[in-house]
């Protein structure tokens, strides 16, 4: 018998098997990923059982870098945009920025399942019982990204967001004690310092993508006027 040392993913999977005993995993060599599949039972906060979703989770190598993709294979959730699911059952758990940051900041399989996946499905059941979603939603597509910049980064306008993104991309050195870019008159360290760190953490690729969208948005607004 040959014993292979378990990989980090395999160790993390074993660690969640107490909480998600009906999920199993396999390796997909062709697509360089781990595939988790099986049943996800949802119970409420008092422990009462509600429903069972068939799920498929793709975890691309190397782990834990990429945000996993999750699909509902059962069809309990209506397949419309309003339910935050694609026609193929891919679930949109959160704004990608949040997910990316979470993984950068050390989120692993256990946290992903417990903080993102389970609440998403519990929330769908909450809505299916005619109560609507329990919490908030992001707007769809780029409006959701703008909402993220506004609510989570305190950059309420595309102009401000663009200004901050550019300052990061241009690698401007920002003095903590100088006046904040936002024009509030306060020192950066007492204003948007944490936001600048977050934007840096999001990485160039995400920022460039968002920048293009913000600029197009302004152009389209200008066109409409």
């Amino acid at each position: 018998m040959i014993f292979k040392k378990p990989t980090l993913f395999e160790k993390d999977f074993a660690a969640i098997s107490d909480l998600y005993p009906k999920l199993r995993y396999s390796r997909d060599e062709k697509h360089k990923s781990w595939v988790i599949s099986g049943e996800l039972d949802i119970c409420d906060a008092t422990g009462l059982y509600w429903d069972t979703f068939q799920v498929l989770i793709i975890v691309r190598h190397p782990y834990p870098v990429h945000v996993p993709n999750i699909f509902e294979r059962s069809t309990i959730i209506p397949r419309t945009e309003a339910w935050h699911i694609s026609e193929y059952g891919e679930c949109c758990l959160d704004i990608p920025h949040n997910l990316k940051l979470a993984f950068k900041r050390g989120m692993r399989l256990a946290g992903f399942m417990h903080e993102k996946v389970y609440p998403y499905f519990a929330n769908q059941l909450h809505r299916l019982s005619r109560q609507g979603y329990a919490g908030e939603e992001y707007d769809h597509r780029f409006e959701g990204v703008m909402q993220y910049y506004k609510e989570e980064l305190n950059l309420p306008t595309p102009i401000l967001a663009t200004q901050f993104i550019k300052s990061i991309l241009d690698k401007k050195i920002i003095d903590r004690n100088s006046a904040c870019l936002c024009g509030s008159g306060r020192k950066t360290k007492k204003c948007h310092l944490a936001v600048l760190h977050t934007l840096t953490e999001l990485g160039e690729k995400v920022l460039r993508h968002d920048l293009v969208n913000f600029e197009q948005w302004e152009v389209s607004l200008a066109g409409n006027n």
Binding site: I42, D44, L93, D94, P119, N123, S129, R141
Partner: peptide, 16 residues
């Protein structure tokens, strides 16, 4: 379903 809320409220879904 009120008892789903404490867990469900952590979810803020998006679509793209």
């Amino acid at each position: 379903s009120n008892n789903l809320a404490p867990i469900a409220v952590k979810s803020k879904p998006y679509y793209d």
